[in-house]
Design a protein around this nucleic acid. Structure first.
Length: 627
DNA sequence: CTAGGGTTAG
């Protein structure tokens, strides 16, 4: 016990009853029952009991948590009246309270006006973390430096307050120097400081440094694992998340809801339905079933793994649906080509009194565009600013360009881009380029390409897109031009691959792949399908589109998604779902082939590519990109 | 005085 606390005890000479009140207060604050804590405080005053040094820290904390700033100033008055102010506990609580109310100046006043606080670690800590809370990173650093000059000892809490000030890639260097600082002080092995540094590196965009901290930590806690798992998950390293999750269970750390949220998000990205279901079982087993974060993650996972029925049933079972829940389910329907349902849910949400945000508008606009609900989408775009006061960003413009573009309204798309108040980014011109591919417009394509390449010269997708547009137009000169350009700029296309999850294993296929164990069977199956497809084309006279079915079949057309589907047909029984994930955009020649296969084999399957879902059933595909 | 979480098109 410090000298200050002893002094405080001696000074207050509190009668035993106040100790009782204080104990209760502390309990309530600890359980985060802040309004109950304040009620108790009021009752305490009414009963004539005066608060003391031990009362205020909890009362101030509760008031701050409820962000009720009038009470805050009032409480400061009480503190002054009882003469408790110079006590370090009370001071830190006051400083922290003012900081939570964004009244940093008042916090600073408390700090400056009490000479003894300038020698106390806790007071510095309170003000430093308060500055960070109010995005005053510089002030925090200055104070930290002064603390060192005045030889006030720095502890782990100081660092825990300061390090979270680094929250974007521009702060990486500062973060590194704080890391060095922690080493100098000898606190780098502290569990919480390590966790804090790890998170800081993730926020600054360097998962590699974060991993280094992770590996060097001698003692890892649940939070350490979670920080690393979410770090990977937020940066798209989905397979690493699953690896780490396995490892964590192996060393005997039990996952909690935070872990599982990160794992589920990675399952969503990978389409790892199997792991996803396993996680759901664990959720039930551990009694996390009512956690709203987890519910949202499950809705999202099922929706994006193709199981909309399950996604919707979880969504319906939720008592409290946040904006995130609605976004997940609406996006699910949108991705699967059920634009009408997405729109219906959106309207339902509005009726329920929930205000959409920018993210949801991206989702609903894209849902409209994939289902050909052009005018409805345009209405929403107009309503965004008019009814909800949301300024459209370039991500919204790219959706609307896509919306108009798919409907063949290329002229309007172009005009829209030129009328934009914000600077169009690559995606906006890219959406126009994509529309040109669908509607075979070489002229506008060249224009869009020129713009998009200024903004994203290294994005291979756009070169491929233009090359395909030329190829469709039988403009071999154009194709050659793009190829040369790509070679000059040393750009190479990432190979396309597809994979299927089967009995807990992932089977990967590249185009023309012959490395799979069942290669012979797979190719035999493909040959059979090809001959059936050919017959079907001939008998139906599918016409112009099919006049050159060599586009669809033959040695040079063994696309990865075809191999994956053939594998699926070989190994699953009728009625079982086949889900294929493709890393890039699914090939449109393949698309026609797969439609026919779904008819011939009388099977339903899903190909999820880089942008959306393609449900194949009875010769039809849910995705209307191709006509 | 203090470290970890869900949604976003192309």
């Amino acid at each position: 016990m410090t000298v200050h606390v002893q002094a405080a005890i001696a000074k207050s000479l509190a009668p035993p009853t106040s100790t009782l009140w204080n104990t209760q207060l502390r309990e309530l604050a600890k359980q985060c029952l802040f309004s109950d804590a304040l009620h108790l405080y009021r009752r305490m005053l009414r009963s004539g009991q005066s608060p003391n040094v031990f009362t205020f820290p909890f009362v101030l904390k509760s008031s701050a948590a409820l962000s009720f700033s009038v009470t805050g100033a009032l409480l400061h008055g009480h503190v002054l009246k009882t003469g408790c102010e110079p006590e370090p506990f009370v001071q830190t609580s006051l400083i922290s309270m003012y900081c939570r109310f964004s009244q940093v100046e008042n916090a600073r006043k408390v700090f400056d006006e009490n000479p003894q606080s300038r020698k106390l670690t806790v007071c510095y800590n309170a003000l430093i973390s308060g500055y960070i809370l109010n995005s005053k990173f510089l002030d925090a650093v200055v104070l930290f430096c002064r603390m060192r000059e005045e030889v006030v000892s720095v502890n782990s809490v100081t660092l825990l307050g300061l390090i979270p000030g680094c929250l974007s890639p521009v702060d990486l260097d500062l973060g590194k120097s704080l890391h060095c600082c922690s080493i100098k002080i000898g606190l780098e092995l502290d569990l919480s400081v390590g966790n804090c540094l790890l998170t800081m590196y993730v926020k600054c965009g360097s998962v590699e440094y974060a991993r280094k901290v992770f590996d060097e930590m001698p003692e890892k806690g649940l939070i350490t694992w979670n920080a690393m798992i979410s770090g990977y998950s937020q940066n798209g390293f989905a397979t690493r998340v699953l690896d780490l999750y396995r490892e964590m269970k192996l060393v005997g750390v039990s996952p909690d809801p935070v872990t599982l949220v990160g794992v589920l998000s990675s399952c969503t990205h990978l389409g790892a339905h199997g792991v996803g279901r396993e996680v759901e079982q664990r959720i039930e087993l551990c009694g996390f079933g009512s956690n709203p974060f987890l519910k949202n993650s499950l809705v999202n996972m099922y929706a994006r793994c193709g199981n909309l029925v399950k996604a919707h049933s979880i969504f319906s079972s939720m008592k409290e649906r946040s904006l995130v829940s609605w976004t997940a389910i609406i996006g699910g329907y949108g991705m699967h080509g059920h634009g009408e349902l997405a729109v219906k849910l959106f309207e339902e949400m509005i009726k329920a009194g929930i205000k959409p945000d920018k993210t949801l508008f991206v989702t609903i606009l894209s849902a409209c565009s994939h289902s050909g609900l052009t005018d409805r989408g345009l209405e929403y775009f107009a309503a965004m600013e008019r009814s909800y006061g949301l300024q459209p960003g370039s991500e919204h413009y790219s959706c609307v360009v896509d919306l108009l573009g798919r409907a063949g309204r290329l002229k309007e798309s172009e005009e829209l881009i030129r009328s934009m108040k914000v600077k169009p980014d690559g995606a906006v011109w890219g959406a126009l380029l994509n529309a040109c591919k669908i509607h075979k417009n070489v002229k506008v394509a060249e224009l869009a390409f020129e713009r998009v390449i200024e903004l994203e010269p290294a994005n291979i997708g756009y070169y491929v897109l233009l090359s395909n547009i030329y190829s469709d137009a039988e403009n071999s000169e154009g194709v050659l031009k793009v190829r040369t350009m790509m070679r000059e700029r040393k750009l190479r296309k990432e190979p396309g691959y597809s994979y299927v999850e089967f009995k807990g294993e992932v089977h990967i296929f590249l185009a023309g792949d012959r490395t799979h164990q069942q290669t012979d069977d797979i190719y035999r199956m493909l040959a059979e399908l090809e001959s059936l497809v050919r017959k079907l084309c001939e008998s139906n006279g599918i016409g112009g589109k099919m006049k050159n079915e060599q586009h669809l079949i033959g040695e040079n057309n063994v696309h990865s998604e075809k191999l994956a589907i053939a594998f699926g047909l070989l190994n699953t029984r009728p009625g079982m779902e086949i889900i294929v994930i493709k890393n890039l955009r699914a090939c449109d020649d393949c698309h026609l082939f797969l439609k026919l296969v779904s008819k011939i084999a009388d099977r339903e399957f899903i190909v999820r590519d880089a942008t959306r879902f393609h449900h194949f059933k009875d010769g039809v595909c849910s995705c209307r990109d191709y006509w």
